[in-house]
Design a protein around this nucleic acid. Structure first.
Length: 195
DNA sequence: CTTTCGATGATCT
DNA sequence: GATCATCGAAAGG
């Protein structure tokens, strides 16, 4: 079977640029994944970011090289997946908030305990569970197994808006989504093009 | 449809 | 001791 050459994602850029570029990209973990439809950007100069207060044990990955996984536990329950970005040592990352399931969907259903494809990966906690994310993935590079990341094959329509679930810097429009996707964690209020 | 609230534990002050 | 980059169930319109 012929497989198109993988288009690489450039993680060596500011987090909002990377977050936008990841919409429409393919993400797989051990072959389970799909198309990224929702991301959020975080940066050290950002009161809502885990890196705002500087380096700690938890956020060390975001002060390491770009293009690696940053994993954290959310509300003591969920595993959330981020991609580190920016030139190394800048404390920036992109939260992967939702994807459209394409491969390993039955495995996702087993892990999630639900059937509806729209509820498998719509939200960072759900996505982490569906993809089997854990601290075992912390700091791993994204350009080789178990990860597979490929940039979009074609141009996609991207919208932007305020981030979700934060209490600081709430107005910054650093949430990005695939326009009109049915697999978002929540719809975008005013669809502002993020060209 | 909406709002409210408990779960659950690491992290940081 | 307070705060979470969340989710799902329950209760109310």
């Amino acid at each position: 079977m012929t497989r198109r050459a993988r288009r690489l994602v450039d993680f060596d850029a500011p987090s909002d640029v990377v977050a936008r570029a990841l919409i429409g990209a393919t993400l797989q973990v051990d072959g389970v994944g799909g198309v990224i439809v929702e991301t959020e950007a975080y940066d050290q100069a950002d009161a809502a970011s885990h890196t705002f207060m500087g380096p700690t044990a938890r956020n060390a990955a975001m002060f390491g090289p770009s293009g690696h996984a940053y994993v954290y536990r959310s509300y003591g329950i969920h595993w959330c997946l981020n991609f580190t970005c920016r030139p190394s040592g800048h404390g920036a990352g992109v939260l992967i908030r939702a994807l459209e399931p394409r491969t390993g969907v039955d495995e996702m259903r087993l892990r999630r305990g639900v059937d509806d494809p729209r509820l498998l990966c719509a939200g960072p906690g759900r996505l982490g569970q569906a993809l089997g994310i854990s601290m075992a993935h912390y700091g791993l590079p994204l350009d080789r197994p178990p990860f597979f990341v490929a940039a979009p094959d074609a141009a996609v329509e991207v919208v932007a808006g305020p981030r979700i679930g934060i209490s600081k810097a709430v107005e910054a429009p650093w949430r990005f989504g695939l326009k009109d996707s049915r697999f978002l964690s929540r719809p975008f209020g005013r669809a502002v093009d993020a060209a």
